[in-house]
Structures are given as C-alpha cells and as structure tokens.
C-alpha cells in the first residue's frame, strides 16, 4: 500500500462523470466491510453517475451495477481520480 500515491480525492469531491479508483481500504474500520462486499475492493474502478439533487448521496457505477453511498459513510475507503482514458 505504500507504493500508492493518492491525490487526496474525497467522496465529497466527486462530481458527475468522474472516474475514480479505490486505492486502499481500511482493514479495521467497522463499516468498510459491507462496502468491500458490495464490490469496492482495492483497485476497483468506478464512475460517478450522479450526485443527488440535495448533494448526497452519490450514485456510482461499480462492477456493472449502480450503487448509492452517503459521502460521510465511506471514510474508510481511500480513492484517487482516474485520468479519463476516453
């Protein structure tokens, strides 16, 4: 995990259409396991489909399905932006 550089991207900084990647997942945070089970494993890329009209939650497309997460409840997951390839 030490060889990863993060650009300090937070879930609250996600905007519609952005692509991001899970850099690392906190192993001991209680709430993170559910998110990992939902497919947010280390290295997984996802796309931000939409931010809800009231600013939260965020809808992402990960592993071919749509998942909504509250910005404040994903603290155990570190993400980085993926430079758009297309």
């Amino acid at each position: 995990m030490d060889n990863h550089r993060t650009d300090g991207l937070k879930f609250s900084g996600l905007r519609q259409g952005m692509r991001a990647r899970v850099v690392s997942v906190c192993a001991h945070c209680p709430d993170v396991r559910r998110l990992v089970e939902m497919g947010l494993t280390e290295g997984t890329e996802f796309r931000v489909v939409k931010v809800a009209p009231l600013g939260d939650p965020v809808e992402i497309e990960v592993r071919g399905y749509r998942l909504c997460l509250r910005k404040g409840e994903v603290a155990g997951i570190e993400i980085e932006q993926v430079e758009a390839a297309r």
Partner: peptide
C-alpha cells in the same frame, strides 16, 4: 444496535 453504512442499489 449499530446501523450499517447506507448502501442503496439502483436496479
């Protein structure tokens, strides 16, 4: 009881 993180699927 603890509440779980909110995960909502949009099928």
């Amino acid at each position: 009881g603890k509440s779980l993180p909110f995960v909502l699927e949009l099928p």
